[in-house]
Design a binder for these strands. Structure first.
Lengths: 194, 194
DNA sequence: TTTATTATTGACTGGACGATCTATAACGGT
DNA sequence: ACCGTTATAGATCGTCCAGTCAATAATAAA
């Protein structure tokens, strides 16, 4: 009953995500977004509501996609420590350009801090499930003797999460792929039973 | 031979630092800066050159001050591991508001990434000396047997640096002081000889 | 075919932005 | 007392910003 949209909404959202991801929210202009998305001004407002709404939707989709990838890598290997290593190594993009973009979630935390309610809500969707899966795998590793049983599994899980953000920040700062991988392996090694 | 400045340049720079630190570069307006600094528009341009020059000067002063504090805390205790613990715990501000500001250097990396030349130069002034001191203290700890001798001291030092940024990002994300302290202690504990 | 509804397009709006200009004021050296 | 120099204050600059408007186009239901 109405004129159908001419552009691919999901594709446009992906393009917008890349711009926000690379530059952050404040220093991205709607003009840049329109150019990247290949749509006209009014179409952005029709389809997404506005700059901030677009950012929130982009961040949410990004979080959903990356979190699902993280959980897959964490759970796939038979050995829990191999899972954690795969999770950490999976954060490190091979392509230099991609890697230097860091993590959009980390960027959002850094840009908006703890104060923004909508952002905090989004963040709350992604932290707990990863933490829970990490605890599960760590306890599993402690049962098999692979993971140091002297550690509190929850503390260790939070430590791995902090390592994730630390790696992603180092990537954003221009860290070389191999240097980041060493860092990841070192962190995993520190969880081993010796 | 000329009219003297009426405001305290250092104090004004400190005030500007707080605003940039809390909000980042892009989402800070010169108007906000002027209000916080208590000076008129032209005085900012006379004394600091412009918004970006002011930011760079603020970041440099911030880095110098915090790095010196870090090195003091790292070197003060007799035990190397106690020094590293003091370094990490020293990152965690007691005051909730301060703590939620995170670290201005981390914010700069997140906002500008690896591409900005002036920013990279500033960052290069602060990383290496801390890394070198960390290596020294870790080797010292390995000599006394307190620190796990199985680790490569440089790898371990880079790991501690990553932990520093991870902690500061967690602080920016609203992490509670006690939770951050646990994280710091856990990281230090992982360096111990067991 | 008509009508209701939504999409597209490009011009436009008010406001905020960083930066500059102008006029006046305050100082030290002569 | 005057001069050269720099500081301050306020008005103003052109630009860019996010968002809106108005005119036209495309669809499906009736």
């Amino acid at each position: 009953m109405a004129r159908p949209r001419e552009f691919d909404r999901e594709l446009a959202l992906e393009r917008a995500t890349d711009v926000f991801w690379a530059n952050g929210y404040a220093s991205t202009s709607t003009e840049e977004l329109l150019a990247a998305m290949g749509i006209a001004r009014q179409s952005l407002y029709n389809a997404f509501g506005g700059k901030r709404a677009l950012y929130l939707e982009a961040l949410e989709a990004y979080q959903r996609a990356t979190t699902s990838g993280h959980l897959q890598r964490l759970k796939a290997p038979a050995s829990p420590l191999a899972g954690i290593e795969a999770l950490l190594l999976g954060l490190i993009a091979e392509d230099d350009g991609r890697r230097a973009m860091g993590c959009m979630g980390v960027g959002a935390v850094s840009e908006f801090g703890a104060g923004d309610a909508a952002m905090a809500e989004l963040r709350a969707k992604v932290g707990p499930p990863v933490l829970a899966s990490l605890v599960t795998r760590l306890r599993e590793g402690q049962a098999t003797g692979e993971v140091d049983p002297a550690m509190d599994a929850e503390d260790a899980a939070r430590f791995v999460q902090m390592t994730m953000t630390g790696l992603q920040l180092a990537a954003r700062g221009g860290g070389a792929a191999e240097a980041l991988r060493s860092l990841a392996r070192f962190a995993v090694d520190r969880l081993k039973t010796r």
